[in-house]
Write a protein that binds this DNA or RNA. Sequence first.
DNA 1: TTCCGCAAAGATAATAATTCTTATTTAGTA
DNA 2: TACTAAATAAGAATTATTATCTTTGCGGAA
Lengths: 140, 140
Amino acid sequence: MTTFFREKLQERGLKVTPQRVAIYEAIVKLNNHPTAENVIEYIKVNHPNISVGTVYKVLDSLVENELLKKVKTEKDIMRYDAVLSNHHHLYCAETDRIEDYEDEKLNKLINEYFIKNKIKNFNVTDIKLQITGKFKNNKK
Amino acid sequence: MTTFFREKLQERGLKVTPQRVAIYEAIVKLNNHPTAENVIEYIKVNHPNISVGTVYKVLDSLVENELLKKVKTEKDIMRYDAVLSNHHHLYCAETDRIEDYEDEKLNKLINEYFIKNKIKNFNVTDIKLQITGKFKNNKK
DNA sequence: TTCCGCAAAGATAATAATTCTTATTTAGTA
DNA sequence: TACTAAATAAGAATTATTATCTTTGCGGAA
Ligand SMILES: [Mn+2]
Ligand SMILES: [Mn+2]
Ligand SMILES: [Zn+2]
Ligand SMILES: [Zn+2]
């Protein structure tokens, strides 16, 4: 899992550093679209000296190099996602829980719709659904 | 236009104050999904003494009372929307411009899709498309 | 092997958006 | 008109994020 990431870093001409690896691993392991702070907390165990600024800087550059994605919420906190495939999000406003929603059939439906119904004056690069609601069995 | 808003405030048991009316008007007139700061700047002309905290508090309570909606972006700034009808957003990451995209046919398509394809363990209350891309003729 | 250049990390100050606190004012009501 | 809960103003505080500046450590040239 880490080798994939190391290779990706090298592809983009980014140095492979323990901090970068640790931050990426944290995002993957935490897997609930963590915040920068979640990452810091998680990492502190094995990297007690990591700097807050470094975490933000690494997150930014990983987003820029398309190894992570930003996830928007209603709140004033940015969250991050290691899942790069084209997927949507289920978002519960009450608990702030965000789950991935992958649905190839839906993607196809929407893409086909927009091929037939072009939006005038706008070049679409990405379409994402924000599905707001409430999880039923909060057994997690 | 202001009477609609006054009535809405009363319906919700909120006092009609000049600040609330002015803030609501600002959102409507600015109409490009303004930030709190945009609102403050706009309002300062006629309400030089309005307090920043008041603007944030009013915005919050109007959102809570469903007279405004929050609009998420990639940035660390919240934006607000007075258009309450179920619509989507065209978002240009370069210029931060956000335009409404209303499409009843699309809404129907998506609603029908989710009636046939229920998401398990999740009660949907709202589905919104974030359409990212670039505006063609930036004549605005 | 030493030295250099440089990207990255660490420490910490600064900033920007938002929230909180407290005293004062106001809108709605009796 | 007077009363009272609700709302506002002012400004401090907090939170998330960014910027600055210094230090570290690796890779390649001498
Ligand atoms: Mn901020
Ligand atoms: Mn903030
Ligand atoms: Zn995701
Ligand atoms: Zn809108």
